[in-house]
Design a protein around this nucleic acid. Structure first.
Lengths: 243, 243
DNA sequence: CGCACCTTTGACACTTGTCAAAACACGTGG
DNA sequence: CCACGTGTTTTGACAAGTGTCAAAGGTGCG
């Protein structure tokens, strides 16, 4: 199937046709939205989880003094809030970084999966665990690494995750986020982020103009970002070697 | 029952006696260890998950240049690595902050639960989702908050989590961690951490001598730490009001 | 063509890290 | 019971990293 969710879950083992059906039936309606729309709000209690079919989205949270932290960035095939099935109310919001196509998976359908499809349930659970592993890596990123390293690390991560869903061309990909948003990802001011990006350009590790990012030297960029892809649980073949 | 896991999972709804039995049978052997032992290593592929029956433990990860980040702190009743059931190999280590009593839950037993006990499966899944919510809050902590706030926030969190398992006395609790470890939690140097703690003391929000912590003014400490307990999914009655 | 938003620059303040040493606490052996 | 040694906490002085403010350039779209 061309279903991006099926494609993603079966990365870690094949699905039976009953399971594929159950997944297909889990998704009810589909919705298109523009860029920069907050489509899930902190404090809400959604009755469905949202799967990203197209575009980029991000989880976020504001502090009392108005600073925004981006908690995760999501791409095609990601559930942006599968955890809302069991964890209510939402303790963060979700907004679109670009125009997006969303698919809604009502919680009662997911519940039915947990009642009748143990293997599929484990796969869904697994996908939330990878979320957790990525969170942990971000904690290291924010807690231990310098500004330039944080940016490098994030770009390496996103490159691989986009590659896993076929959204890269060679060492390039489309990244529809502003430097303001990137600053909220990397936990720094926009001015300092800008200087960090320029640093990466000056080192000839990266090109980034508008929405087009190109990694000019994977080995040095990933070394600078202290990037070890293990936490993403991706197949070996997706990880660049050499260059 | 006095089983801390049962106690914790049933915070979010009662367990049937079949479910309690299945849980009791999921735990095979029990083990005591000393302080400061790395009992799960990064890269290992454990065949069981570990439940903390007594003591304090922490997940951690080292960067290439030797900095350690603590990813989470665990207390009585926590699974320190339930995710290792589905996520292998470990992308972080786990070590004891104090002497601990551990219970081992072989993965094949957990798998049996997922085959026959959907409700219990959802509860276990739920507990890993709370882990994720805590990770997200730590991301905000490291990304957005000042040094003093980060420390205040962590202490508020731990106080409530300890309270939920009956490990507090009034506004006090035992915290068997060194300032070195606290620095690796809050993502800062030990010197700066020490000055932040002294700042909290000078403001009369906190007493912390040796392993004894006492929160002297909950309202002001939680305000300073920008602490909103929602993400912990704890019952309302555990949250202090006034003072 | 002009407006709105995004990126880039410069100057400066402030937070946090580093290094090195002193003070303190605690457990062990004499 | 005291002396000693090890690890932890605390200090001081200074360096480095990052944030803030304000303004100038760019870019793309209506």
């Amino acid at each position: 199937m061309e279903d991006p969710l099926v494609k993603k879950l079966s990365l870690h083992g094949p699905l039976s046709s009953e399971e594929e059906n159950a997944l297909a039936e889990a998704v009810s309606e589909q919705r298109d939205i523009g860029a920069d729309e907050e489509f899930i709000s902190e404090g809400s209690e959604p009755s469905y989880s949202i799967l990203l079919l197209e575009g980029f989205a991000a989880r976020f949270k504001y502090t009392a003094d108005g600073k925004r932290q981006i908690l995760s960035v999501h791409v095609k095939g990601d559930f942006v809030d599968l955890h809302s099935f069991l964890l209510q109310p939402m303790e963060h919001g979700v907004f679109s970084l670009s125009p997006c196509t969303l698919a809604l998976a009502p919680h009662h359908r997911i519940r039915e999966i947990t009642e009748g499809f143990p293997h599929l349930t484990r796969l869904l659970w697994h996908s939330t665990l990878i979320d957790g592993a990525i969170h942990r890596e971000w904690i290291v990123n924010l807690g231990c690494r310098s500004a330039v390293s944080r940016v490098a690390h994030f770009l390496c991560e996103l490159f691989l995750r986009l590659r896993a869903v076929g959204e890269t061309q060679g060492r390039s990909f489309r990244l529809p986020i502003t430097q303001n948003e990137m600053a909220d990802i990397a936990g720094m001011s926009i001015v300092h982020l800008n200087r960090s990006v320029q640093d990466l350009r000056a080192r000839r590790l990266l090109s980034w103009r508008g929405q087009d990012v190109s990694i000019d030297n994977w080995d040095r960029l990933s070394a600078l970002g202290d990037f070890d892809p293990n936490y993403l649980s991706l197949p070996e073949r997706l990880i660049p070697s050499g260059d």
